[in-house]
């Protein structure tokens, strides 16, 4: 996705949909139809996967959301009862609140830190080794990262608390206290993902033509001014893409919670995915869990749409 975006920016002529006269447009359409067979042939393998593992399950998931289904036995149609139950479900609203809190912390810190890292990579750290090292946390599996931090941040025997204690400060129950659980989980995931996000933004930075900067420096613009007036606007399409992808990923946080707090203490870290998992696999309430999933799906679609629409993610200021 990244490459197509950058290519489009460098080569505006390749952008489709330019207004042309009727005749050429028709010819173009015919040509495109002629390519259809070939195109289908190439799309086919990916299509099988999409239909089998995404489309059919999604449709069935939507169907199940209108049923009561315990996996053993057949689903019974109950109409919108799952959805109306959700409105009065305190745990659902709590889960949404917790998730939004997590997304806010996670995306806020992650984007700012990643942007800083990307600028450093772009300007200062030219060594491939250092650039590669930034990506290291991302190469470790999520669950391993979560467990690693879970142990390092343990109240009694974790190394972080040993250090805090040694400095004469009171120990912190990172995963155990209600105030700290979500910020801790968010921080762990920021640590894991910031290198990867920085890499995406770094690619975006590289696509900004150098001559724009040259003109800016000729005009005597300060580095701060250059950043806000040139880097940020020209980075916008990439930034929007990164935000859409990371926000969607962030809403779906599950593994870190599942292997550390399991949703606790009390309900402090029961994010929406965790709640869905508990309803489905813990309480065998697949109908209600499906309804929750559908709602999450709608929210994510809406969030992505709003981001693309209002941040104009499909347009570049380079044109």
């Amino acid at each position: 996705m990244m490459t197509t975006l950058t290519k489009q920016q460098q080569d505006p002529a390749a952008r489709p949909g330019l207004p042309t006269a009727g005749k050429t447009a028709r010819k173009g359409r015919l040509r495109r139809l002629g390519d259809l067979k070939m195109a289908l042939f190439f799309i086919f393998p990916a299509m099988i996967g999409f239909v089998l593992f995404y489309l059919v399950p999604t449709i069935r998931g939507v169907y199940l959301s209108f049923t009561e289904y315990s996996i053993l036995g057949d689903p019974t149609w109950i109409g919108v009862k799952n959805y109306t139950a959700m409105l009065g479900d305190e745990l659902f609203w709590n889960a949404m609140g917790v998730t939004v809190q997590y997304v806010g912390l996670n995306i806020g810190f992650q984007t700012v830190i990643a942007l800083g890292l990307a600028l450093l990579m772009h300007r200062v750290a030219k060594s491939t080794f250092i650039r590669g090292a930034l990506l290291l946390p991302f190469l470790v599996a999520n669950v391993i990262v979560a467990l690693l931090w879970f142990w390092m941040l343990d109240y009694q025997i974790g190394i972080v608390n040993e250090i805090i204690n040694w400095m004469g400060l009171p120990r912190i129950a990172f995963f155990g206290s209600e105030q700290w659980a979500i910020p801790t989980i968010a921080a762990v995931n920021v640590w894991r993902h910031m290198g990867y996000t920085a890499l995406l933004l770094f690619a975006g930075l590289q696509s900004i033509p150098n001559h724009v900067y040259e003109v800016a420096s000729l005009d005597g613009a300060s580095p701060t001014r250059t950043f806000w007036s040139i880097t940020m606007p020209l980075l916008r399409p990439v930034m929007v893409l990164v935000l859409v992808v990371t926000v969607i990923g962030s809403f779906q946080v599950f593994d870190t919670v599942a292997v550390t707090t399991g949703g606790g203490p009390i309900n402090a870290s029961r994010v929406i995915q965790m709640y869905i998992y508990q309803k489905a696999f813990g309480e065998s309430d697949f109908g209600y869990a499906s309804a929750l999933s559908v709602i999450l799906f709608l929210i994510l679609a809406l969030v992505a749409f709003v981001q693309m629409k209002f941040l104009k993610g499909n347009e570049s200021d380079l044109d």
């Binding site: 998931g61 779906q252 489905a280 999450l296």
Partner: peptide, 14 residues
């Protein structure tokens, strides 16, 4: 990247 659990669950259910 991550898939929604709901989708995965539904796939499993099917």
């Amino acid at each position: 990247m991550k898939k929604t659990i709901g989708v995965a669950a539904a796939a499993a259910a099917i």
